[in-house]
Amino acid sequence: MLLRTIGTVAVLALGASSAAAQTIDDGLMMPRGTLSAGVLYTHDSWDQYWEGTLKRKNGNIGTLTQQSLTWIGGYGVTDRLSLMAAVPYVWTHASQGVLHDLSGIQDLTFAAKYRLLATAPAKHGTFSAFAVGTAALPVGDYTPDFFPLSIGTGGGRASGRLTLSFQSTSAWFVNASSAYTWCSNVRLNRNAYYTDGQLYLTNEVAMPNVLEHTVSAGVNRGRWRIPLSLVQQRTLGGGDIRRQDMPFVSNRMDFTKLGSGVMYALAKNLSIQVSAAHVLSGRNVGQSTIFTSGLVYAHHL
């Protein structure tokens, strides 16, 4: 996705019955007893990136493409509590230069989404609030020391998220969601590295925490759900990529990304989705264009 992926779970979508998909940052819940599973395919590519704040191309990379195939699963424990899980297989490729492709199983993510409150249906609609806890750990034996080709950061993450949602009686909705992610330190295979203006004589890298805000709005009607979203990620620390240096796992990676998509219920238990997003601005990230498509099946126990 970017020079570093902050958990595939950010786009993790879990279908439920009818038109309702569920992601960790939307205003939807799966009904109690619903078991869902699906796959998502993501194609993310960029040919320009920000070296610090300087936007550039790099002949030794050309176009960097990261593809992933993600298994997702979910379960509605109650009408107010859902559990979700995801694990992606990721592969990266640079169109130019001599650097080798990388691929492998990335991180296993678990999330629990809890509806804190929901107002009674009023004349205009319903307001609700959600809390989401997420934990992610690498399961594959991949290297975090070969960006931009590394498939992940190789560290554990935990995040807390709060989402506010309004669903109008006339089908449109608006959501606002913020998440704070704690990132565990990462270990490299080398005993020294230079980042953020300092030589570190250790194999351990302190990873900065991450703040993310999402606002989305759209239509949720019948078999259709059509959201438009704006995501802003701010990394709370880390150094810039130095001039003509390789990216580093703990770089300060910021971006603003605009996206839209369509989710459509093919049948009572089956939904498909396609979406696209584009990075508008960033720092130490690629200017990605991202396409996602997915298929989710839900079963009511």
Binding site: A112, Y114, T134, A135, A158, G160, C183, S184, N185, A206
Partner: peptide, 24 residues
């Protein structure tokens, strides 16, 4: 279950001592 997940999350984050070292 939410509490269980949050505890697991805290365990992951518990390793998040940002101070790296030791240096030489």
């Amino acid at each position: 279950l939410l509490a269980v997940i949050l505890c697991a999350a805290a365990l992951v984050a518990g390793g998040c001592d940002k101070v790296v070292g030791p240096f030489e």
